[in-house]
């Protein structure tokens, strides 16, 4: 298996605070990798570094053999990284299907003029976009909600829609920021199935941040634990979760 993501020695400081310090991660193609750690450990900052929201002070990010360290979020996405957000960021005033269509933005093209004049090429491509969007929604079992406003969806469905929208950008690597946050056990279980399903169906490489240990131990193959911006442990899920250092970071000393 080829290496999908190879990030080396990533560091970033905000003023005097070293939010992420010497972070290294290596994800193989098709792997499901978990990033865990107590609140404020810098997990989301790592995501922001990987997706270009922040530029690292030091370190390199290599995706599928290409150096993408200095790219902005738009080009990071175009080179194959898609993400979801910890606090849901949907296009709330657009319909569910339009949300997915925005994700398909760079997959289908016609000129602006064709779009304004609604030429035959516009109709043809729009039809393809519509079909692809509906296909994606049906993968997530959301096709019945296609014309609902995104903000009117139930919470769990909104999370799923965010994943669907990220998948629409045809990424090589999918970053999920606390996908199960705020979900009840049933929704979490369904989410786990969805994640496993898209992983199998699309051969997707996934890196996820999560607090729900049931989900993490259930689906992640490898884990990295962050604490105060530093890596505490990494390796197979079982051994990492059994690591006394990790237990101490989570539960404190006795």
């Amino acid at each position: 298996m080829a290496t999908m993501l190879d990030a080396k020695n990533l560091s970033i400081s905000f003023g005097g605070l070293r939010a992420v310090d010497d972070f290294t991660i290596k994800i193989e193609e098709g792997e499901l990798y978990g990033l865990i750690g107590p609140n404020g450990a810098g997990k989301t900052t790592v995501f922001n570094l990987l997706t270009g929201v922040y530029k690292p002070d030091e370190g390199r990010i290599i995706l599928g053999g290409k150096d993408i360290t200095r790219l902005d979020p738009v080009h990071k996405n175009k080179s194959g990284i898609a993400r979801t957000f910890q606090n849901i960021r949907l296009y709330s005033k657009l319909s569910v299907i339009d949300n997915v269509k925005v994700g398909l933005h760079n997959q289908f093209h016609y000129s602006t003029l064709a779009g304004i004049l609604h030429t035959p090429s516009y109709r043809k491509v729009e039809k393809e976009i519509d079909e692809r969007a509906r296909d994606l929604l049906s993968v997530f079992k959301m096709e019945q909600h296609a014309d609902v406003l995104a903000s009117n969806l139930p919470y769990g469905e909104q999370r799923k829609l965010e994943i669907a929208r990220a998948m629409a950008t045809e990424p090589k690597l999918l970053l999920l920021d606390e996908p199960a946050a705020g979900m009840n056990p049933n929704e979490t279980k369904e989410l786990m199935e969805t994640i496993s399903f898209i992983r199998e169906k699309f051969g997707m490489t996934i890196l996820l941040i999560e607090h729900d240990m049931k989900l993490v131990s259930g689906i992640c193959e490898k884990l990295t634990v962050l604490n105060f911006g530093r890596m505490l442990a990494e390796g197979g899920t079982k051994e990492v979760l059994g690591n006394p250092e990790v237990i101490k970071a989570y539960l404190g000393d006795d």
């Binding site: 997706t51 929201v53 902005d72 979020p73 738009v74 080009h75 996405n77 175009k78 898609a82 993400r83 957000f85 960021r89 949907l90 296009y91 709330s92 005033k93 657009l94 339009d98 925005v102 994700g103 933005h105 760079n106 929208r165 990220a166 629409a168 950008t169």
Partner: peptide
């Protein structure tokens, strides 16, 4: 409209 509704998400959608 995506930019209107959520600039950060629009950026992450390329």
């Amino acid at each position: 409209m995506a930019i209107r509704d959520n600039r950060i998400a629009a950026e992450s959608n390329g």
